[in-house]
Simulated assay, not measured.
Amino acid sequence: MFDLGGIYNSQNHYIWTTSRDEADEHGGIKMRQKFPQKVVIWLGVCSKGVTPLVILDQGTVDHVEYIEKVLPIALKYGKDAFGKHWIFQQDGAKLHIHHLTQKWCRDKFPSFIDKDHWPPDSPDLNPLDYCIWDEFAQHVNWEKVTSKPTLIDE
Score class of each variant (00 low, 15 high):
M1W: 08
D3F: 02
L4V: 11
L4F: 08
G5E: 15
G6Y: 08
G6L: 06
G6S: 11
I7S: 10
I7Y: 15
Y8P: 04
S10A: 15
Q11A: 11
N12P: 00
N12T: 08
H13G: 01
Y14W: 12
Y14S: 10
I15T: 07
T17D: 05
T18W: 13
T18P: 04
A23D: 02
A23C: 02
D24N: 11
D24K: 15
D24A: 10
E25Q: 13
E25G: 08
H26F: 11
H26K: 10
I29F: 11
R32A: 02
R32M: 07
F35Q: 06
F35H: 13
P36L: 03
V39D: 01
V39I: 00
V39N: 05
V40T: 15
V40A: 06
I41Q: 00
I41C: 05
L43E: 07
G44D: 07
V45F: 10
S47E: 07
K48A: 14
G49R: 01
G49T: 00
V50Q: 10
T51G: 02
P52E: 13
V54E: 12
I55N: 03
D57N: 07
D57T: 02
G59T: 00
T60E: 02
V61W: 00
H63C: 00
H63E: 01
Y66E: 02
Y66T: 07
Y66R: 02
I67S: 03
E68K: 15
V70H: 06
P72N: 08
I73F: 05
I73T: 11
Y77Q: 06
G78P: 02
G78S: 03
G78F: 13
A81P: 06
A81N: 05
F82Q: 04
G83Y: 11
G83D: 09
H85V: 05
H85D: 13
W86A: 06
I87E: 03
I87Q: 02
I87Y: 00
F88K: 14
F88H: 14
F88I: 09
Q89R: 14
Q89N: 09
Q90G: 12
K94N: 10
L95G: 00
L95R: 08
H98C: 01
H98M: 01
H99D: 12
H99T: 12
Q102R: 05
Q102V: 01
R106S: 12
D107T: 04
D107H: 12
D107K: 13
K108R: 14
F109E: 06
F109M: 08
S111P: 04
S111R: 14
D114W: 07
K115V: 04
K115A: 09
D116V: 06
P119Q: 01
D121I: 07
D121Y: 08
D121W: 04
S122A: 15
D124K: 13
L125I: 07
N126M: 13
N126Q: 14
N126V: 11
P127A: 14
Y130M: 06
C131K: 06
W133R: 03
D134M: 03
E135G: 11
F136V: 15
A137Y: 02
A137V: 00
Q138D: 10
Q138I: 00
Q138H: 13
H139S: 10
V140H: 03
V140T: 08
E143W: 11
E143D: 14
E143A: 15
E143G: 06
P149G: 10
T150V: 03
L151G: 05
D153P: 05
E154N: 11
E154C: 11
